[in-house]
């Protein structure tokens, strides 16, 4: 099958045809329309796309953290060490979540509990998944804060989240996520709310820790610059599907999907001239409430021809470890 040439024991997470729906009062939103990809051991996989493309829903579906009343994963598999996470009981899933697969979010203020000290929250995560005593767990918390380079960790373990800056809170979140040495860290826009100089520090920290611990990272972001600096492989999502996947250098050198190409060209780049009009992607993203016929990008695509409006293109190989869901990918790569 497509892009499965790598040895199976390299694969940490294998997502197949994942489909997630959101249920409104009168409508169903097909947030994920069959998403398949793999995360290999120790790699950093970037997931890029714009608001509503399904990148966060993918993460929440993998970890089964979707809002229970309004959303459901209706199809597909999430294979982790050969077992389908979607089949596990809630109890079994809790053992995996935060222990073997951890997640960090965009806004550390809302993901940390405001009424407990940071140290206690990290220690709690440790105690849930190991049989550590409170004092060893607290020692572990302090060690983790030192690992994420928070100055003065002895004092900071006793801080409440509000006593920390945004950058420090994100460090504390990373400390908590890594406390149980997960095999996979899912980071959902972890630096989007931070200032650029702090973002540079946090990105460097994630890259360093990944190299030290061997944790694989699934890095969700809308920022192509962040992808270029942190990821080895990238998947690009549009309207609930993967439209392209490639090694990061190939993706930037020769984007094979018109959407990827449009996205890259719409980022201001002084090398192409200042105060000039930027190439736009015309139109807006389609509604996922109605079924989409053909390629979901066709109405905005400069390459679209009749077949694009009639048949949905499947992800297919366009180079070594480079796949795109586009009928005209070869021409796009030459453009």
């Amino acid at each position: 099958m497509l892009m499965r040439e790598s040895a199976e024991d390299d694969v940490l997470l294998d997502v197949r045809d994942l489909e997630t729906h959101f249920y409104g009062e009168e409508s169903v939103t097909r947030a994920l329309g069959g998403v398949s990809f793999q995360v290999k051991k120790g790699e950093t996989l970037g997931v890029v796309g714009e608001s509503g493309c399904g990148k966060s829903v993918t993460a929440l579906s993998i970890l089964r953290l979707l809002p229970k009343l309004t959303a459901r994963t209706v199809g597909g598999e999430v294979r982790f060490h050969g077992r389908d996470l979607l089949d596990l009981s809630d109890r079994e899933m809790r053992k995996i979540r935060g222990h073997r697969i951890a997640m960090i979010f965009q806004e550390p203020m809302t993901s940390l509990n405001p009424v407990y000290t940071v140290g206690r929250q990290i220690a709690e995560a440790v105690q849930i998944h190991t049989n550590a005593t409170h004092s060893t767990a607290m020692a572990k918390a302090e060690e983790m804060l030192r690992l994420v380079r928070i100055a003065d960790p002895e004092r900071r373990v006793n801080n409440y989240p509000y006593e920390m800056s945004g950058g420090m809170r994100q460090r504390a979140m990373i400390a908590m996520a890594l406390a149980c040495s997960p095999e996979l860290l899912i980071a959902d826009e972890p630096t989007t709310a931070l200032d650029v100089t702090i973002q540079a520090q946090i990105l460097r920290l994630i890259v360093d820790l990944k190299e030290r611990t061997g944790t694989a990272v699934m890095f969700i972001t809308h920022d192509l610059g962040v992808v270029a600096e942190t990821c080895q492989r990238v998947i690009v999502m549009y309207a609930g599907r993967i439209v392209e996947q490639a090694a990061v250098t190939d993706l930037f050198a020769r984007p094979a999907h018109p959407y990827t190409q449009g996205l890259m060209r719409s980022v201001p780049d002084p090398r192409r001239g200042r105060q000039r009009r930027l190439p736009e992607i015309p139109g807006i993203v389609p509604s996922l409430r109605e079924p989409i016929v053909g390629c979901s990008f066709a109405p905005r695509c400069p390459f679209a021809i009749d077949i694009c409006r009639e048949k949905t293109p499947m992800l297919r190989d366009v180079g070594s470890s480079h796949a795109a869901a586009c009928w005209r990918a070869e021409e796009v790569m030459g453009a």
């Binding site: 800056s165 950058g167 420090m168 200032d195 650029v196 100089t197 702090i198 973002q199 540079a200 520090q201 990105l203 460097r204 920022d223 192509l224 610059g225 962040v226 992808v227 270029a228 600096e229 990061v248 250098t249 993706l251 930037f252 890259m264 980022v267 780049d269």
Partner: peptide, 25 residues
């Protein structure tokens, strides 16, 4: 200088040498 160096650049071939600025405002 640090602010410009810290901005991520969408070019994977560019190698960042070091974190441009430590500490916080």
């Amino acid at each position: 200088e640090a602010l410009i160096a810290a901005a991520p650049v969408p070019d994977p071939t560019r190698v960042r040498l070091e974190v441009p600025l430590e500490g916080e405002m």
